[in-house]
Amino acid sequence: MAQRRPSYLRVFLTFARNSLVRDTMFRTNFLLQCISSAGWTLMNVGFYLIVFQHTPLIGPESGWGKYEFFVFLATTWLINSLVQTFFMTNADDYSELIRTGNLDFVLLKPIDTQFLVSFQKMDWSSLSTFTAGVILLVVALWQLTTRPVHPLSISPWMVGLYLFYLCCGVAIFYSLMISLASTSIWLGRNQTLYDFWFYITNFARYPMEIYNRGWGVPLWGFFTFVVPVLVVVNVPARLLAQPLHPQRSLSWQLACFALLATIVSLLASRWVFQRALLSYRSASS
């Protein structure tokens, strides 16, 4: 037989297709999940609408007004929903594969193990949050570009960069998640994976300036340079909403750093994954 590499794209599409078939088999559940995630997004918007009734900005002179912040919020949703759609179920399954020993089958396949582990399943219902994110983003941008004072202008170039950094953000979150999941090879169990994930990514949900006060500075440093979750949403949202228009140079440094952080995160997660796999292969019977 010819020595042909599998087409990763086609394998991925088959995964996506199988997941869709599976999701449509449990239709009620799928629908309820869509409804609940729509409810979640609505309530979130509601909360920030209330907040902005009491304040014009988040942080003095930060530039994060209502619609700038809604761009930020939409970006958070977009990234989170992508991570949930593609990786959350798989990270969960990964610990399960390790626990049951079914990881053996994954190791047998003539295809990259990390690829197989990371993409096996898709949670299509999480895309409802994605849709909500797109809607919110469009509404917020519409408001920003048509406001009478300092209307925002958006070039195709910016949109391209935004999409690129969206992917970077997803990649950083993915790296964090797969690294956390890999630790279950050493720890044996992973009930706290979700908690950890939630607690860490929680810091990414707000503009990074808010940590720039009091005892927030070490937190800011840690979540920017050690576990770079702060750049995940901040960089793309900042690019598009431009809350710091006058100090653009700072933004560009941040953008370069985000690129670096993405590459390092991906490499680090690959390393952690391989190391964990190595101890799986020498430990199990």
Binding site: R4, R5, P6, S7, R10, V11, T14, F15, R17, N18, V21, R22, M25, F26, T100, G101, N102, D104, F105, K109, P110, I111, L116
Partner: peptide, 25 residues
Amino acid sequence: MGQKNQLWWDLPAQESFRLHQQIYR
């Protein structure tokens, strides 16, 4: 392995077979 299964639990076997076709080309 008789005690483990690698097919997708909720899907018809046919779909898992297709996946194998893709992976093994």
